[in-house]
Design a protein around this nucleic acid. Structure first.
Lengths: 229, 229
DNA sequence: TAGATTGTTAATCGATTAACAATC
DNA sequence: TAGATTGTTAATCGATTAACAATC
């Protein structure tokens, strides 16, 4: 993923007047996109807890993002809030989904049927955001054919076929380091453009493919630093 | 964690001249700290793969951070690289650890002995960065006393005692949403200041406590957005 | 030497935030 | 109405990056 050319400020160049949803600009800046995704996470949880309305101040306390910035981020796309009241949780969720263009369903292939793989498959973190785990693979022949939730573990040899048949957009690697690069190569060959890496290895992929490496320890280091100082 | 007052630029106010390590400023800016932690993650993996030297360009390709910025981030603290060669991996790891003040060992208590808990306990993501899981808890009486790796699952009633005895700095919640807030409350009462939340719930904690919520789906949404546009 | 890569400058651009009028 | 919270302005400050001399 190149980072150099995504900087058009959101909302720039709008020419319409009295609507309450501005046209979504071509491309959000990296920061805005990241924050919107973050708001969405909190909103989704808030919705589960039955909250109907949320203020920028509340969103701020859960996201660590300044409340002015939250209002600014949102007001760039329309007037979603009610003064004196806050934002409607449901409404805001669908607005942000629209802005992030992730209102649809996206299919995930999961690699590794160990503890981590099973944890991911049974969790609804992904499901809440429109991602569905539609296939699980494991290199261990003994695991192939066994069930994980409603899915049967598949043989990794069938990856290209399954990617095509199931319209898979994201590959999630919950496998040992030793297996990760080979699987990444297969995913790339099969046309998958987004790889989520939970393994310890550094993946080498072509520039058009995005690898996101999970980094709980990095996040911890970061939190610890601000705790220690 | 308040975000408003951490903005002193790194390296500002230095008065020394001809050393190769500048004094570490009082507090890194949020961005620099986050990036340094990120570099550390890649360096740690590179080290495992036997790499002795790494260039800012290589670091850039694995971190998505511009190579100029990497050089700039590092040169703020000293001249760690060799022109024409790059950075020594080992050396850079210890320099960054020193800058982040996380060179020591820090103890973690893990909550939840399900799939996710076991995956975390058996992984070395944390161990690689000096974090050690020293206690595992579970609310299920049937699991208490069973083994997870070298550790025995403990009763959650013993949390305050264990936090004190084992000098626990971080609590990691790998439990269902329904249990998360209660455990967070207990951790706060026991004096733990950093909570890592893998559950689906929004945790309410006092301002001096930092909650980091894991958000793979948020990261995916973000990646997907830039893939779709 | 020739090639590579750092360290650093200088300029730009976006992010951040306090403050407050508008208004629910 | 009184209280609360949004939407927006205006000003500041930090992040970002191209470019290149220094030097391994």
């Amino acid at each position: 993923m190149s980072v150099g050319d995504l900087t058009k400020p959101h909302g720039a160049g709008d020419t319409n007047g009295a609507d309450d949803t501005e046209p979504v600009p071509d491309r959000l800046s990296l920061g805005v996109a990241a924050r919107l995704a973050r708001y969405l996470q909190v909103l989704t949880k808030a919705k589960k807890e039955g909250k109907e309305t949320i203020s920028s101040q509340e969103l701020s306390s859960f996201t660590q993002v300044n409340s002015t910035q939250i209002r600014r981020d949102l007001s760039g796309f329309g007037k979603f809030g009610k003064r004196g009241v806050g934002y409607n949780v449901d409404g805001l969720v669908s607005q942000i989904r629209k802005i992030l263009r992730t209102a649809g369903q996206h299919n995930i292939a999961l690699f590794g049927a160990g503890h981590l793989g099973r944890a991911i498959a049974s969790s609804d973190v992904f499901a809440d955001h429109g991602f569905r785990v539609v296939a699980i693979f494991d290199a261990d022949p003994e695991k192939v054919g066994t069930s994980v939730g409603a899915l049967q573990v598949r043989d990794v040899a069938t990856v290209p076929q399954v990617v095509e048949d199931e319209d898979i957009v994201v590959g999630v690697l919950a496998v040992p380091s030793s297996a990760a690069q080979t699987l990444a190569d297969q995913l790339v060959l099969s046309g998958v453009k987004i790889i989520f890496n939970y393994s310890e290895s550094l993946l080498r992929v072509p520039p058009e493919v995005t690898v996101h490496t999970s980094s709980p320890a990095v996040d911890l280091l970061y939190a610890l630093y601000f705790y220690l100082t």
